[in-house]
């Protein structure tokens, strides 16, 4: 599949249990030239419609009837790893946002963001970029700190940020745009973007390793293939 460009129609699915919002987002996206290939009001609707709709980007509210936005993120990305999830959240409950990012969401926007911001975010997420808010960068920084402050015994799987990644993430948390960061650090825009993406990837990998380890420790690994 070709990477989406501005000229092609980007296929988007909108998941939100609030009808007014769903319609508003759908209208805005269609007006901006996106193809809204599916809408859903609940987690189960989203999962049922996802395989047929095959969206490139899922615009997802975290506060939806079950399964939760976090579970939908995980499930959708395991079905189609090339899909992208952009969280559009009203309440911004921080633990949920962090969980969604760990589950693989690559973008986060609060609902008070303007229409232009939303459209730009969907486009960027579709291209494979990450859309960070300063708030999310702060959460991710905090999460890495917590991981490194954790148990004393050395854990080979414990993710760590490089000095550069920490520096970039701190700048995002302080509200600098990627372009400003690139100028300050004398890097290319692409490199800054890569650093940010790497931080998320490390968190997601760590999350996956932990889930697998948990499954093995609790005998949920469906080991009947081996034995």
């Amino acid at each position: 599949m070709d990477p989406a460009t501005d000229s092609e129609q980007i296929r988007v699915m909108v998941v939100d249990d609030h009808p007014m919002w769903r319609d508003a987002v759908e209208r805005d996206l269609e007006a901006a030239g996106f193809a809204v290939v599916g809408v859903a009001a609940t987690g189960s609707e989203a999962l049922a419609r996802f395989p047929a709709a095959r969206p490139q980007v899922v615009v997802l509210d975290l506060q939806i009837p079950p399964p939760s936005g976090v579970e939908v993120t995980r499930e959708v990305l395991s079905q189609d790893p090339s899909a992208r999830v952009l969280i559009l959240s009203a309440s911004g409950e921080q633990a949920d946002v962090l969980d969604a990012v760990k589950a693989g969401a690559t973008g986060y926007l609060v609902k008070s963001a303007s229409r232009e911001e939303l459209i730009r975010a969907v486009r960027r997420v579709a291209q494979g970029d990450t859309v960070f808010t300063p708030g999310l960068a702060g959460l991710v920084l905090g999460e890495f700190r917590r991981l490194s402050d954790g148990p004393a015994e050395p854990d080979p799987d414990r993710p760590e940020l490089t000095e550069r990644e920490t520096e970039v993430l701190k700048m995002v948390a302080k509200g600098l745009s990627y372009k400003q960061i690139a100028d300050r650090l004398v890097l290319s825009h692409r490199t800054v973007q890569n650093h940010v993406q790497n931080t998320l990837r490390k968190l997601q990998m760590h999350n996956r390793v932990q889930l697998t380890r948990y499954a093995i420790e609790h005998g949920l690994d469906g080991g009947d293939e081996d034995e």
Binding site: A90, S91, R115
Partner: peptide, 21 residues
């Protein structure tokens, strides 16, 4: 409260967005 707050937040965000437009 959470359910109510979520609804209120949604509407407030929507008013903000439509109002600006």
């Amino acid at each position: 409260a959470r359910a109510v707050h979520d609804g209120v937040l949604q509407v407030l965000a929507l008013v903000q967005r439509r109002g600006t437009e």
